[in-house]
């Protein structure tokens, strides 16, 4: 097996007496697309937020990205630069144009020149299908467009792995498709992706591996076919039934 680009060992996280993560072990290989599904409060978001230490985890858990321990200290920013993240609420910088949003980190962190960063920004915007919006401000874009900018912004750092934290959950339904399409293209181009999502259709179509989480644990993981068509665990089955019924009635 290829060396893991992300390696998670014995991850625990307690909020007071509530165990958000109760012992997670997980390796992600380079180029792999992993979708994490599960009920709300199951710890999926907490898990991927631990990967770039937006969330602290309890000792003695360990997260390695490309072999480097993600921990507080001087190397943290450098490790974070290798981990792209797309948030549920976009988190674009509202006082900057779309182009400047994308240029900022490559210039400040990678030391790229203004012109290199700018042409890369346009190239990435073309990739996510909105190059004509480069000089607008985030507030002038639709939610779906904003999220595509957020993806471009993360990609501009040429990260080793991309994290998606429920990227379509705050979008109007008609905009979910455009964002998922961009993510699908990324997955096909070989980007390593860890996606927390409620979009079962996307997970089935795009994931190499689907992980079902509940109560801070990985209950079951396997290929989309294994998880969706033939779940071994009752909890997985109950969850999937609930989600799919909801989809049909909704």
């Amino acid at each position: 097996m290829m060396p893991a680009i992300v390696s998670i060992k014995d991850l625990y996280k307690n909020f007071g007496s509530f165990a958000a993560l109760a012992g997670i072990n997980l390796d992600i290989a380079e180029g792999e697309v992993v979708c994490i599904v599960g009920p709300s409060g199951s710890g999926k978001s907490t898990l991927i937020r631990c990967i770039n230490l937006l969330e602290k985890y309890d000792d003695p858990g360990q997260v390695l990205v490309d072999g480097i321990h993600v921990e507080k200290g001087r190397r943290l920013a450098a490790v974070r630069a290798e981990v792209g993240m797309v948030f549920q609420s976009f988190n674009l910088f509202p006082h900057m144009t779309v182009r400047d949003n994308i240029k900022l980190a490559p210039m400040r962190v990678r030391g790229e020149s203004e012109s290199d960063a700018s042409s890369m920004a346009i190239e990435l915007l073309r990739k996510v299908g909105i190059e004509e919006q480069a000089d607008k401000y985030p507030a002038q874009l639709s939610g779906g467009q904003q999220q595509r900018v957020a993806i471009a912004r993360a990609l501009a750092m040429k990260p080793r792995v991309m994290l998606f934290d429920e990227p379509t959950s705050s979008l109007d339904p008609e905009m979910v498709g455009e964002v998922l399409d961009v993510m699908k293209k990324l997955a096909e181009s070989g980007v390593t992706m860890i996606v927390v999502t409620h979009e079962m259709g996307f997970a089935r179509l795009v994931a190499d591996r689907v992980i079902f989480m509940d109560e801070g644990r990985i209950i079951e993981s396997g290929t989309p076919a294994e998880i969706f068509d033939n779940p071994k665990e009752d909890r997985t089955r109950v969850f999937l039934n609930a989600v799919l019924e909801h989809k049909q009635s909704g």
């Binding site: 937006l54 490790v79 976009f90 988190n91």
Partner: peptide, 14 residues
Amino acid sequence: PYGQFEASQALGLS
């Protein structure tokens, strides 16, 4: 909003 701090940190900004 806190998300602005998180987005900056996630990008690796100092």
